[in-house]
Design a protein around this nucleic acid. Structure first.
Length: 601
RNA sequence: GCGCCCGUAGCUCAGCUGGAUAGAGCGUCGGACUUCGAAUCCGCAGGCCGCAGGUUCGAAUCCUGCCGGGCGCGCCA
């Protein structure tokens, strides 16, 4: 069972109201929801919009609706104020329905059928195999992986895809540097993680290239740009480019080197993904996909999507998308481009998976690329319209400004996880002096990673935000640690309570006051937020909803009026059930976010 | 120059398919541990929602124009 109790309650109240409106000549679709104004009850609707159709003042409409709503068994009070219909629920009855639902129904955990029957392919991470991952990749990995989880919870079948960029000039740079300066170094011989070792050679190439550039152009007044130098007379540049040509020609020796170094790098990535809890169902590699798309060019030429220029290049006219200029999809010399490959890869996915949605998790600097790509794809296959999504996300900045790889101002993903772990461990030692070292390590890992994930997910994807390492593992505020702490405390109270007599009737009236009501509301609203997060690609709604459950619980827990241990039995049972319920939902929220719950911290 | 994104409390951000008195967290200040775990909680203060017009019974939200910031505009990836 996966029902959304809140949605059911609201629509059961709204349905007869809607019926009355339609009978009176208005359009259906009454929006009944939480009021924006404090003290206006639990549900509200603005009636002004119906005034014209019904030829009645809003206040009269609100009053009419109020009379109908009054009859609903869960409605305790109705009120018509200034054209607004305000309802107060009968919270004892709502609690009586909510608790068993929250304790037993999968819908309370955020499972739904909002995307049932759909197949969704989601591509994320897409790293280059020439250097280790950094904080920016973390946002991508976590965003993509969490979206996959959420979409799955909404009932869709999900295929998680990683398209690894394992070929190209940037890989050749690392290879050249290893061949020149590596002296046979391997991850084993150096004790370095493979991706870090490859990255070190990528940096080494850049250093050598810069030294070469300075040496050759010392004292010169008109130096070429570094790009021009690289693509011109630079010995290092020539060596790297020659290696790329040799790779493309299938040169045995180059391929052996390439396979070896890519193997190191991918093994390193795998370790990083495993620690982050990120996984994939399918791996694509550019070394395989880069030749895709060529057949599409012929097809597009035949049906008029593309046009051939005098020099043989094939282009797509961007006027068709309301943009200026043209996009080349095949060079004059017949070679393909990144876009060509992307077209081919998308088609391959369509053939292979038959998706209803294809989502690309890629930074917002590629907004235009995807606008063009999707435009071309829909011209080639009109059926794809509305099925392609670019989950565009903003940059992650640091407290001291933007991450700049050139200036070495990057936060390495592995180092970051280590630091967060260490920071969490310090506090764990203080708070759990009796715990054994092994469980302290595990707890610190859960808190460090949880803090990171929550922090990366709590911003809407489009938002560029500042990552603050210290703040991410602080227990106060809207953090993962706060939610984990609430979960742990809820568990501890229930433990202390021991076995309760569940045969008695809970005192539901104990849950009608403000604090328990706030918890119930958080539980009731949780599924809707999770569903919306899946449909609108906004995991931040889940961090908010989870935090809300934690926050309302903490407020209740700290209030002496709601102490469980010495409450009388019927009241105690009602409160205990509420705590069990919020703990279950809290656990579900953390699970959806890929965060480990913690029993003691 | 053109296109996209952003501009909301001291700071970091929600709210943007139009609804009543614009929210949260952090920070500041003031409180609560012999009381279920204080990595917690409670309270106060804090806003011409970038500016100016327009549409509407009603605008942070929709439209237009400015100002300020980011990104993009390769036969690169």
């Amino acid at each position: 069972m996966a029902t959304d109790l809140y949605a059911e309650i609201v629509s059961s109240i709204a349905a007869p109201l809607d019926g009355w409106l339609v009978e009176s000549g208005a359009e259906p679709g009454l929006s009944l929801g939480p009021p924006t104004r404090e003290g206006a009850g639990d549900l509200a609707a603005a009636c002004h919009r119906y005034a014209k159709a019904l030829r009645k003042p809003p206040q009269a409409i609100a009053a009419g609706l109020a009379e109908i709503a009054r009859a609903h068994p869960l409605v305790a009070e109705v009120e018509a104020v200034a054209g607004f219909l305000n309802l107060r629920l009968d919270w004892a009855r709502v609690a009586e329905k909510t608790i068993p639902w929250a304790l037993g129904d999968d819908g309370a955990l955020g499972r739904s059928s909002a995307l049932a029957g759909q197949k969704v392919v989601i591509e994320y991470s897409s790293p280059n195999t020439n250097k280790p991952q950094h904080l920016g990749h973390c946002r991508n990995n976590i965003l993509g992986h969490t979206m996959a989880t959420l979409i799955e919870a909404a009932g869709a079948e999900v295929v998680r895809v990683n398209l690894i960029n394992d070929r190209g000039i940037h890989i050749c740079k690392s290879m050249v540097a290893w061949r020149r300066f590596g002296a046979g170094a391997t991850p084993e011989s150096t004790g370095m993680k493979g991706d870090h070792l490859v990255g070190a050679f990528y940096v080494r190439f850049d250093q050598a290239f810069n030294a070469e550039y300075e040496e050759v152009h010392a004292g010169a007044t008109d130096r070429p740009s570094k790009d021009a130098w690289f693509n011109g007379d630079s010995p290092l540049g020539q060596e790297a480019r020659a290696m790329l040509r040799a790779w493309e020609a299938g040169d045995e020796e180059v391929h052996a080197l390439w396979r070896m170094m890519n193997g190191w790098c991918e093994a390193g990535f795998q370790a990083t993904y495993a620690r982050m809890g990120v996984r994939f169902d399918h791996i694509d590699r550019e070394s395989v996909t880069w030749k895709l798309g060529r057949e599409l060019v012929d097809e597009g030429l035949a049906n008029g999507t593309f046009r051939r220029l005098d020099d043989g290049a094939v282009v797509f006219d961007l006027e068709k998308l309301g943009l200026e200029g043209q996009k080349v999809v095949l060079r004059g010399d017949g070679t393909t481009l990144y876009t060509t490959q992307d077209l081919g890869t998308a088609m391959q996915r369509l053939d292979r998976f038959g998706f209803d949605q294809l989502i690309y998790v890629v930074g917002n600097e590629q907004d235009r690329h995807f606008q063009v790509l999707f435009g071309i794809l829909t011209h080639l296959r009109p059926a794809l319209a509305g099925r392609l999504f670019h989950l565009s996300y903003g940059m992650v900045e640091l407290p001291d400004g933007r991450m700049k790889s050139r200036e070495g101002n990057v936060v390495d993903a592995d180092d970051l996880m280590d630091e967060l772990h260490a920071g969490a461990l310090e506090v764990c030692r203080e708070n759990l002096p009796d715990a054994d070292p092994g469980s302290l390590e595990a707890t610190a890992e859960a808190i460090g990673l949880g803090g990171l994930k929550f922090f990366l997910l709590r911003y809407a994807p489009a938002t560029t935000f500042v990552f603050d390492k210290e703040r991410s593992i602080r227990p106060e505020g809207e953090t993962g640690v706060y939610c984990q702490y609430a979960y742990a405390r809820a568990g501890r109270v229930l433990e202390r309570l021991g076995d309760l007599d569940r045969g008695i009737t809970p005192d539901w009236a104990a849950l009608t006051e403000e604090k328990p009501r706030a918890v119930l509301t958080a539980l009731l609203q949780f599924p809707g937020e999770v569903r919306m997060a899946a449909v609108e690609h906004k995991p931040s709604l889940v961090t908010k909803a989870t935090f809300e459950a934690a926050r309302t619980f903490a407020a209740l827990y700290n209030d002496a009026d709601y102490r469980l241990l010495d409450a009388e039995p019927a009241r105690q049972l009602a409160l205990a059930l509420l705590v069990e319920a919020v703990r279950r939902v809290l656990g579900a929220g953390l699970a959806l976010l890929g965060i480990q719950p913690v029993e003691a911290m």
